[in-house]
Amino acid sequence: MPVPQFDYIAPKRVDEAVAALVEGGKETRVMAGGTDLLVKIRHRMLFPKRIVSLKQIEGLDAITFDKNTGLTIGATALLADVAAHRSIRRYYPTVADAAQSTANVQVRNMGTVVGNLCNASPSADNAPTLMAMGATVNITGPTGSHRMALDQFFQGPGITALKTGEIVTSICVPLPPAGSGTAYYSLSQRGKLDCSAVGVGTMVTLKGNRCMDVRLIVGACAPVPMRTLGAEKMLIGKKMTDTLIRKTAQAASKETSPITDVRASAPYRWKIVAVLTIRALADARKMALGKR
């Protein structure tokens, strides 16, 4: 099939990129690594008239970490760089693991964490962990800049809260609180390198064995990566026993609304949400207790 023709603009500054987006209107797309966008164009799922690349904007690929303010991942920071970053591996190991479990080597060397989020696939590997850790996105647009919680960002498959002309310039992840633990589990039919059929990310904060706070996010089982709020409530304030974890996992599974598609059936996904939730919560608990 013919590749649609489009203009390619690679501005050097964020405000120029925003201007190019505003000028281009609805048929303009932002590109970071291009690993999702160009494939969609090639497969004629998208027909943009203009592409605005962020790759020439200096500093946008920065990854910075500060013990007070937390972690910032720039819009063009590569998945591979996030997976290998020393501070991320030390303070946010699950963020690094999720980046590492995204796609394959070639995609990780081209694609970006922020791009993975902006693509808004329900199965995006990076979303559950980042949502669980309370990440926020930094957005710049024609009317200035603002922040948004990541769990408000996803609106549907391929749809985000971004308005015309807006760009996600970076994502911020606060420093995990004391006594917290995180985990991400994903699963697909093929094994090691694959698009996830189900993903579960979590962060729990414990005092002793008591759960003070928890966020539990399920990927690929709803139109967006979804928080299972009911399941979270079951844990807060309680002793995090194996029995309670199992009950919570069942509840989390019930909250999701998976579909049957080429990657898995809905009944299988429901089952697997429970299995992976048990594993993720048990792992996060272990990490929170300093045993991992």
């Binding site: 497969h43 394959n104 039919q189 093929r190 094994g191 090691k192 694959d194 698009c195 080429v262």
Partner: peptide
């Protein structure tokens, strides 16, 4: 284990290597 055509009647639904699952080197 993993390769199959997902069909809807006469239509093949998995037409890329993302969803037609050949084992990878890692598998």
């Amino acid at each position: 284990l993993s390769e199959q055509f997902v069909m809807d009647g006469g239509k093949t639904l998995n037409t890329t290597f993302l969803d037609y699952k050949i084992p990878n080197a890692a598998d």
